[in-house]
Amino acid sequence: MAEHTFLLPDLGEGLVEASVLAWLVAPGDTVERNQPLVEVETAKSAVEIPSPHAGTVARLHAAEGATLAVGAPLVTIDAAAGPDAAAGPGIVGTVPDEEPPARRVRLRPPPE
């Protein structure tokens, strides 16, 4: 079992915070992946956040009524299976990496 702390994601486009309306799970509960964990409200709408992992709820990091910044810890889950990719908060999309691209094609220079 590995602990995963799930951070409050950006729930819209550039939203910076959300407040916890109601927890739908409690510490010790068993949750399935995609099971609703918590209802939060943003400047745009109220939404249910699904669990990114299957496992056991270890800790809730915010009380009902509290306002959380995007990126703040929301809930820690003891994952039942292998680790999922960590879901980080952020903008819509990802900053592109600037690694030089790998090539396979070689050119033959034209005759002078």
Binding site: P101, A102, R103, R104, V105, R106, L107, R108, P109, P110
Partner: peptide, 15 residues
């Protein structure tokens, strides 16, 4: 468009 796809097109115009 990948670098290889562009390089292949360059090869086509060169040859």
């Amino acid at each position: 468009p990948t670098v290889d796809r562009v390089l292949l097109a360059v090869q086509r115009v060169l040859e």
